[in-house]
Design a protein around this nucleic acid. Structure first.
Length: 968
RNA sequence: GGGCGGUUAGCUCAGUUGGUUAGAGCGCCUGCCUUACAAGCAGGAUGUCGGGGGUUCGAGUCCCUCACUGCCCACCA
């Protein structure tokens, strides 16, 4: 065993090595199971979320456990949010793998249409060219080159961070087979009548020059103006109708003014016409537009008369449809006025607005201009104000029943969650999801970009019809003409990522069949992701997954129901990472914490542990490096505990004592994943073991049970705190200090005792490493290999079994006795402080206690001597005056020293105690004399308060005596 | 305009179905380089659980209300 470890833990020295090792040795690859394996292993279909979420040891072995990595953008750099998300996934995957489950984590990247195109376009511009000059083909070629070079950044960083993914399954959303699948999905949806093309109002980004889905528009409250203008009534000089608008520049596209049919103010105008100001070269040449009644208009808002511009507003568009009005487009794709705007043609929308308002003012048609706040839509990518624009686009009908029957996409998606086939955690997001899905509009899936999956539609120049095809057609399917040109639009990025749970496992299978991977891994068990992509991605995966997988038979050949068509059984929404001041991290604010920088400074394990410990669900996380510093110290603590243990193993060897860990925690060689899930018993039988040995094993077992339970509930914070507290607060602070007494390697020593102690020490430490391993994979891997002298029973600690509690090792008696010893030792230490005894000095102590406690203290005198630095222990009937005395319900203890106590300080302390006890006693008495309490409170609670009350009597008495003594 | 969170020690946060003395880490104070660890050890101080009201034998926990704060959704010109 190497024990030349450096004194301080240096993560940089070991992490690269293990990161490379895990990838090179394919430690985390999960091949497609053979038929024989498939028969042995339960299929994911048929299992419920509840079954899959059970803690280990309560379910059948080799449960499937598959997680898809939310694919980062190819353009992305790893940020703290990624690292947090991946740490959570990795902890769970490592845990479930060690529980013996078939744990698969599939990695990949997303082509991220707009983001990537923008990035490469910027480069091209820097080189003095434009995308248009390059042309589509050359530009796309260029993006591919960029992707080959830089596209793997995040995945490379993941490798360095030790993410336990199956790299053999790595995908890119524009890989050939994924592209084929995307095309298949598109064609099928088209054939089912769910994809249609048409001219509608869409969100248009004038800067990106593409349509956007509703989700890609972010609304921001902004104070603008609301204008009231007068439109003259045709043929009635001097009469006007006042309308209100926030976008005067669109007025030249007005085709009507609508009023509520019941609005008395305007009833006389129904059927009359207005002269649209500024619409002709002279007022007399103005276009006339009708006044139309429509119940959609709210009489209360504005003037109760609304201008109708079907080409530039979704409501107006609908209104126009209802009343069979024309659409007049006055803004072009770059948000400049077009020829229909007459004199204003060529102006930017805001210049035009100013000019139009000024010109109307000159005509005396401006009634008022007031401040007005409303939410304005901006492009998610570039923050340009979005222009609602009439445009021909492709849509996915989400509320429509497919031609061949079945449920609409949204109906399936709603049912999947409502019927519990998908569980959403935390529960509050279930409602959010439900609301969204129930109010969803058709999804605009076409983008006017070059980078992405090109829509498989061909326009015929001869008959003007479209051919939609799985393979590129050579002739029009309607007129057989060869004058075909492919649709230039590409698909929304989320269309392809929405298919991922199916496509990464080989979808589409041949008609009526499945694929081996779909059989083995679909549905996946869990999706861990952020709230921000709940609608973008999660909802789309549910819609598309449920839709397409219903047609794929289950492994036993039976038809698939919604329960097994879902893409995942459960969604866990994690918190958002913010900076230490709770600010959202953003590049523009400059408060982005680069995880790699922090990792280099503190080590991956410390950063992971920080993220895990702070990962309480439901609230945002303020990332604070102070915490990471603390957990680096924890890593160092583990490191030094290992050094201590190695040192003793070495000493044992010299004294001819060896402990064979392999025989204690048997790992059979034939089954690489086998291990010792239950914590091994120490060599000696329970009763013969010294207190610290029985106690530490009891605590290890309890902690183990609690950690397993916490992880099964995704309480990473609880699990992390449990292991931290156990390892540092119990194993290191108490057990290691006590075990030093037993590790006597002198010739005269009791060899059996030393061997037993060393055995317990090694088994508990080894189990602790396995417990820690999902949280701190690097450190534990390093130490674990060293513990086995670099000849470990498995290729990685990650392939051993996670500890499970052995119930017979939980020992309440040992827990109680140890607690009493700890209390006594702490009391002596405190008393020493009262007397300002030098740290090194050994002092005599006197203890007043019950006979049974006396027995415990006497038989463990060696522990008390060492940990409390006591020279002698006596048990007199009464304790002498003037000494530093500490009391607890179980004992009083005095320390004898030449120095006297600080009377004032002691008096203050005792008075404080007295007040506290009195208050508490008052409370207890009140409850115990309350009939209602005694009648209604559960017995254990009453019993507990009774016990405490009697303790309080003793404590009060002792404290009062102490005070009396001080004051005499 | 709708909906959802948060408010607990100086800071960052835990606190299970209401139940005995509200916890942790960091920071702070005091003393120690006690041969695993000064990235450490030991001891210590610190809270009207946002305000008010209610339910209950009992409220940090449940209900109402107010305040502050964060987020999401939304086609009102």
């Amino acid at each position: 065993m190497p024990h030349d470890l450096p004194k301080a833990y240096e993560p940089a020295a070991i992490e690269d090595h293990w990161a490379e090792y895990w990838v090179r040795e394919k430690i985390f690859d999960v091949p497609t199971p053979s038929q024989a394996e498939k028969d042995r292993v339960p299929h994911p279909s048929g299992s419920s979320a509840d079954e899959l979420r059970q803690a280990p040891g309560t379910s059948k072995p080799q449960r499937p456990f598959t997680i898809l990595l939310p694919p980062p953008n190819v353009t992305g750099q790893l940020h703290m949010g990624h690292m947090f998300e991946q740490a959570e996934i990795d902890i769970l995957i490592r845990w479930r793998r060690m529980c013996g489950d078939r744990a698969l984590w599939v990695p990949g990247t997303d082509h991220a249409g707009i983001a990537t195109q923008m990035m490469v376009e910027k480069q091209v511009v820097l080189e003095g060219a434009t995308r248009q000059q390059l042309g589509r083909e050359a530009f796309v070629e260029r993006v591919w080159k960029w992707k080959q070079h830089y596209g793997g950044a995040i995945l490379d960083q993941m490798k360095r961070l030790g993410a336990s993914v199956d790299w053999s399954r790595e995908y890119f959303t524009m890989d050939d087979h994924l592209s084929v699948a995307v095309r298949e999905a598109f064609v099928r949806l088209y054939e089912q009548g769910l994809i249609y093309r048409g001219a509608y109002i869409v969100n248009w980004c004038p800067r990106c020059q593409t349509a956007l889905s509703d989700l890609e528009v972010i609304h921001e409250e902004q104070t603008g103006k609301i204008y009231e203008f007068s439109y003259p009534v045709a043929g009635e000089p001097g009469t006007f109708l006042n309308i209100a608008t926030t976008r005067p520049e669109t007025m030249l596209g007005d085709v009507a003014v609508a009023v509520h049919p019941d609005d008395e103010r305007y009833k006389h105008l129904h059927g009359k016409f207005l002269l649209l100001p500024l619409s002709g070269t002279a007022p007399s040449a103005a276009r006339s537009i009708p006044v139309i009644p429509d119940p959609w208009v709210s009489p209360e808002f504005g003037t109760g008369a609304v201008k109708v511009t079907p080409a530039h507003d979704p409501d107006d568009f609908a209104l126009g449809k209802r009343h069979d009005l024309p659409s007049i487009k006055v803004l072009d794709e770059s948000a400049h006025m077009n020829a229909n705007a007459g004199a204003y043609a060529g102006l930017d929308r805001y210049e035009a607005r100013a000019r139009i308002v000024a010109d109307l003012d000159a005509l005396g048609l401006v009634v008022s201009i007031k401040d007005h706040t409303n939410a304005i839509g901006k492009c998610d990518r570039c923050k340009t104000v979005v222009e609602p624009l009439l445009s021909t686009q492709w849509f996915l009908a989400v509320n429509k029943t497919p031609a061949a029957g079945g449920q609409s996409l949204a109906a399936n998606a709603i049912a999947a969650v409502e019927q519990g086939h998908i569980r959403i955690t935390p529960d509050q997001y279930r409602k959010t999801y439900d609301e969204w899905m129930k109010n969803i509009y058709d999804w605009c899936i076409s983008r006017q970009l070059w980078w992405g999956h090109r829509i498989p539609a061909w326009h015929c120049a001869t008959c003007r019809q479209m051919t939609i095809a799985r393979v590129d057609p050579t002739a029009c399917e309607h007129c057989n003409s060869t004058a075909l040109t492919q649709e230039t639009d590409v698909l929304d990025t989320w269309f392809s990522s929405g298919l991922l749970p199916c496509t990464v496992f080989g979808w589409p299978p041949p008609e009526g069949e499945s694929t081996p991977d779909l059989d083995s891994f679909y549905p996946t068990q869990l999706l861990i992701t952020g709230f921000d992509i709940l609608f973008f991605w999660v909802a789309r995966m549910i819609m598309l997954g449920c839709h397409f997988m219903l047609d794929v038979p289950t492994p036993d050949g039976s038809p698939r129901t919604l329960a097994d068509a879902v893409p995942f059984r459960e969604v866990y929404i994690h918190a958002l990472i913010r900076d230490a001041n709770r600010e959202k991290m953003s590049k523009t604010k400059g408060n982005v914490i680069d995880p790699i920088g922090i990792v280099k400074q503190y080590g991956t394990d410390a950063v992971r542990f920080t993220l895990a410990a702070m990962a309480s669900p439901g609230t945002d996380i303020a990332f604070n490096v102070a915490r990471t510093e603390g957990y680096r110290a924890f890593a160092n603590k583990i490191w030094n505990a290992a050094r201590f243990i190695f040192m003793n193993v070495e000493r044992a060897k010299e004294a001819d004592i060896t402990v064979n860990l392999l025989s204690l925690a048997p790992h059979s060689s034939s089954e690489p994943k086998a291990g010792a899930p239950f914590i091994a018993h120490s060599a000696m039988s329970g009763l013969d073991q010294p207190i610290e040995s029985r106690w530490i094993q009891s605590r290890l077992n309890q902690t183990t049970g609690e950690i397993n339970r916490s992880l099964s509930e995704y309480r990473f914070d609880e699990a992390a705190n449990l292991i931290y507290q156990f390892f540092w607060g119990e194993f290191c602070d108490w057990y290691l200090e006590i075990v030093k007494l037993r590790l006597d390697f002198a010739d005269t020593a009791d060899k059996a005792q030393t061997t037993a102690a060393l055995t317990t020490l090694l088994t508990v430490f080894e189990a602790s490493l396995r417990l820690l391993s999902p949280f701190m994979p690097f450190l534990t891997e390093e130490i674990w290999h060293a513990l086995y002298d670099n000849n470990p029973p498995a290729k990685s600690i990650a392939l051993t079994r996670y500890p499970l509690p052995g119930p017979d090792l939980i020992n309440p008696e040992a827990d109680r006795e140890m607690l009493l010893l700890q209390d006594l030792i702490s009391a002596v230490r405190a008393a020493r402080k009262d007397l300002a005894v030098e740290e090194k000095a050994m002092v005599p102590t006197l203890i007043h206690t019950s006979a049974s406690n006396r027995g415990l203290f006497e038989s463990n005198a060696d522990i008390i001597h060492k940990l409390a630095r006591v020279s002698s222990i006596e048990f007199p009937d009464t304790l002498p005056e003037g000494s530093a005395k500490r009391s607890s319900p179980g004992f009083d203890v005095s320390v004898i020293y030449e120095r006297t106590i600080d009377v004032a300080a002691e008096s203050e302390r005792l008075t404080k105690d007295l007040l506290r006890y009195e208050k508490e006693q008052l409370n207890a008495q009140r409850q115990l004399t309350n009939e209602a309490f005694l009648a209604k409170a559960p017995a254990p609670v009453v019993e507990g308060i009774r016990r405490r009350a009697s303790e309080l009597v003793t404590l009060l008495e002792k404290t009062q005596q102490g005070l009396d003594r001080l004051n005499t």
